[in-house]
Design a protein around this nucleic acid. Structure first.
Lengths: 125, 125
DNA sequence: CCTTTACTACGAAATCTTTCGTAGATACTA
DNA sequence: TAGTATCTACGAAAGATTTCGTAGTAAAGG
């Protein structure tokens, strides 16, 4: 699954807001970017054809929902990204990400826990 | 700087192998993908126009070199990626990356050190 | 030399993605 | 009920990226 940039924007809205009409998605999108209503409509129709989205047509305005998981999609985007941008080195990516984005105490603890897990797998004392 | 996918492939070769001719880059690319020689040539010419690459024309076959830094480019790609794929949460990205890619002992230590730095900044004991 | 090979230049086709205009249908409102 | 607003469908333009064919030129090998 390799959603295009515009598709990803729509996915983000649907993942965060849940099932929505074209109008609702479009209103979200136009908060940051200027784009015509029929553009959003068309994109969502295309995404439905590709089985990225499903929809219920009961009401006059259709309600769309995402058919692919956010984490699963992120996982595959991440794999691809590590390959193309970091020559396969996830570690380099992690280091850069940690270096340039601040994390909260809780987040750091979570990451630390994960690290410990890997450390143990790697060379258990 | 937002190199396209094909451009990024070429950049990877040049970053890893150093200054190279079109032939050399092309031979690397065809190890994984099937593409015509003139395609690679054209891409590199375009990249030169965009000032992503420079070249010396002394020899019959030109030698190209990268004009943008690998880390700097990765940084900007990463920022963009965190936004579009992880809704801005670098932490989610880090967690996923750690979860799905194995790291060596040394790498884990490096990450751990970085974490400690951030922890201290966040809530120094 | 003359032929084959390797290279650059470049236009343009092919493909993929995004954008929009127009048309037709239904609901809402004065 | 006439007019306005809102929705879907859809073709096709516009834009961006990738691919390749052809032409011209210089080198290399017989």
């Amino acid at each position: 699954m390799k959603p295009t940039d515009a598709e990803l924007e729509i996915l983000q809205v649907l993942w965060s807001k849940g099932p929505s009409t074209v109008r609702q998605v479009h209103d979200e999108l136009t908060k940051t970017r200027d784009v015509g209503y029929t553009t959003t409509l068309k994109l969502m129709q295309i995404m439905q054809e590709k089985s990225i989205l499903g929809r219920t047509e009961e009401a006059r305005s259709h309600v769309y929902h995402v058919l692919i998981g956010e984490e699963e999609t992120q996982k595959s985007l991440l794999d691809r990204f590590v390959e193309t941008a970091f020559r396969g080195s996830a570690t380099k990516l992690v280091i850069q990400a940690l270096g340039q984005h601040k994390a909260s105490r809780e987040e750091l603890d979570e990451i630390r826990a994960l690290l410990n897990e890997q450390l143990n797998q790697n060379s258990p004392d």
